[in-house]
Design a protein around this nucleic acid. Structure first.
Lengths: 170, 170
DNA sequence: GTATCTGCAAATTCTTTGCTTGCCC
DNA sequence: GGGCAAGCAAAGAATTTGCAGATAC
């Protein structure tokens, strides 16, 4: 049986779950119910969830998790190379999945705070060259482009109302 | 020709001070002794100082400042377009000057935490194209490349699985 | 003169840690 | 069974806020 197409529980996610299991073994740590829940919830969520948001989403699915457990597991995910920690300047850590295929950079509107993701293919080669020139072994990268999004340009230039939803993919 | 790196109190800084004075006026706020000190100290410092480090450096120069004042002033600097807030993942906000001429990106070693700056010229054009494709008005950008620096490669050529920082528990 | 700013400390927010009980291997 | 992990609460750290006295304009 296959999951419905709108969710992200697809082949990619299954391989992520495998990656995770393998990573846990490699790191010499146990595979627990909570860790599986957190990974599954994290992979199913769109955007860049914060620990608190992951906990909220898990609760919605009937799983009660301690925040500390989420922080600890997210750190594991980062160590395992499955997640990356980002900072959008809103005072809390945000995480995105990292599977080597969906590389992108972030366009962050300085007025409404929304983020747009764009593929990074056009600049990635340059990053590699650059790292090589510094004898630097590149593991991952994060690019933030700050400015004004289309919507805020149309809107009144001094509108400072922040949206509740931070992420819009387009 | 290359400028000597000892002090940054040069023509660039003087124009920054002017920018700042102008920006303060434009924002309708006052020009105080503390604000001038903070800007001067910030411009004179190398690297990416945190609020605490700015306070320390100011004290070394004989100025006693409240941390809250520094936070508030740094926010002003960011608003005025003279500084940019960065996150190197060490749990505190770090700031860099932003004057439109010294654009660069950051190579961050995940083992020793050291950062290398590299000119961004080779990728900047791509960023502009990309922003334009999204009808996004680009103000500034921040790029972080994570990996291992030359020194750490020599030091521990095999241990690439532990990107710990000083906040690690062991 | 008055509206804004500073500095202090308290408050807030995000994140980590200590410890006891529970669960994975 | 032994040791790692979860959950809770308390600690810790970074940042923000409230307010009384000080200061720029």
């Amino acid at each position: 049986m296959y999951a419905l197409p709108q969710t992200r529980s697809d082949v990619t996610d299954r391989s992520c779950l495998d990656d995770f299991a393998r990573s846990l073994q490699r790191l010499g740590v146990k595979q627990t119910r909570q860790r599986k829940v957190i990974l599954q919830v994290f992979l199913d969520m769109e955007g860049h969830p914060s620990p608190e948001e992951i906990r909220e989403e898990a609760r919605r699915k009937g799983h009660r998790l301690g925040l500390a457990t989420i922080y600890r597991t997210l750190k594991l995910l980062v160590d395992a190379g499955l997640a990356r920690k980002l900072d959008f300047g809103d005072g809390q850590g945000r995480y995105e999945r990292r599977d080597g295929k969906e590389r992108h950079l972030h366009l962050i509107c300085q007025q409404c705070g929304r983020t747009i993701e764009a593929p990074v293919a056009t600049v990635e080669g340059r990053f590699s060259e650059l790292a090589e020139a510094h004898s630097f072994v590149l593991h991952s990268h994060t690019t933030m482009l700050y400015g004004l999004c289309k919507a805020c340009l149309k809107r009144a230039p001094k509108d400072t109302t922040k949206p509740t939803k931070r992420t819009c993919s387009e």
